[in-house]
């Protein structure tokens, strides 16, 4: 926490500051997962790695999509595509709150002038069969992060417990940079030869995706995709652990989980298209949860999930 605080001037500087900070705390700095997800939690580096007994420490940026939040780039705070910064450490270290506060300082928040508060906010993901206790962290009344101690993921009790930090990057950056509309936020340095704002990069895509999400996405195709992903997930998990070709024990937890992520995102798209009724909603969420649980069951049977030949 002793680094001299240099006020960042752009969105990417804040991301870089977080990357540097968490790298210094010993986290593996991962890259975003290459699939459409609703939140950083869906990255297997969080969902699956929070399971089992193996220690873990990772941090990464995750582009996240929430089709229903699209506002054609007009709302100052809402986007259908945005970035989350995610940190997961297992077991949760005793000084996780201090580490977290250090990260705020690293991005230029002066601890002596601001009012930081931990306000109760229990996290639950019905689609992942996961829950945890923690807070939303307030800086001068604004929610800047979610802080969660995972208790259960994919229906499995977490032992040891992971500590998860999620930063909504746009909101946090807007606050630090003093910007009122997300589209006005400098993405690279304002002094760069070609200065780019967030809007230069994303205003058009927000419009295009909002139109597609709300009015154009082919619901029939999506409904089929949902069922296909569900079937594929189940088919993958029904294979023998023993690979007939290599003779190795290869449980395909990650490929199956990819299908689960896919089903989850398709559900979000269908929801944005307004074709899912209130009663159906619960049923769809239940179906994704069933997949997530099956993937979790499979993962804990793998080495990364804490399985070992000796114990078996």
């Amino acid at each position: 926490m002793s680094d001299p605080v240099q006020r960042p001037r752009s969105f990417q500087e804040i991301i870089l500051a977080l990357q540097t900070y968490w790298a210094r705390q010993g986290c593996a700095i991962l890259q975003p997962y290459d699939m459409e997800v609703g939140a950083g939690t869906f990255h297997p580096a969080t969902t699956l790695r929070s399971l089992g007994t193996n220690p873990w420490a990772a941090a990464y940026v995750q582009p996240s999509r929430r089709p229903t939040d699209g506002r054609y780039g007009e709302n100052p705070n809402r986007l259908q595509h945005y970035y989350q910064y995610q940190v997961l450490i297992k077991p949760s270290p005793p000084n996780l709150q201090e580490l977290y506060l250090g990260s705020l300082q690293a991005i230029g928040i002066d601890m002596a002038l601001h009012d930081i508060r931990f306000v109760e906010d229990d996290w639950e993901s019905p689609t992942l069969g996961a829950w945890g206790l923690g807070w939303e962290v307030w800086c001068d009344g604004m929610e800047v992060s979610q802080f969660t101690y995972f208790q259960q993921v994919g229906g499995h009790d977490c032992h040891p417990v992971s500590g998860e930090l999620t930063y909504g990057l746009e909101r946090l950056a807007m606050y630090v940079l003093g910007v009122d509309h997300v589209m006005d936020m400098p993405f690279n340095s304002p002094d760069a030869p070609i200065p780019l704002t967030y809007g230069d990069i994303f205003k058009q895509t927000e419009e295009e995706f909002a139109r597609w999400n709300f009015d154009v996405a082919n619901t029939e195709v999506l409904l089929n995709h949902f069922v296909e992903a569900e079937n594929e997930c189940n088919a993958i998990l029904s294979q023998d652990a023993q690979d007939p070709k290599t003779g190795k024990r290869i449980i395909m937890a990650h490929p199956a989980y990819d299908q689960c992520i896919k089903a989850s995102h398709i559900f979000n798209l269908l929801d944005a298209r307004g074709v899912i009724s209130v009663t159906e909603r619960q049923a769809y969420i239940g179906r994704v949860r069933t997949l997530a649980k099956a993937c979790a069951d499979a993962f804990v049977q793998t080495r990364a999930g804490g399985w070992s030949e000796d114990a078996a």
Binding site: P91, P93, P94, L133, G134, Y149, Q151, H159, V161, G163
Partner: peptide, 18 residues
């Protein structure tokens, strides 16, 4: 009303007990 575990411990408290 709701309690949790943390780290590697088995004790339950409302949030980590220091």
């Amino acid at each position: 009303p709701k309690s949790m575990r943390w780290g590697t411990g088995s004790l339950r408290w409302v949030r980590p007990l220091h």
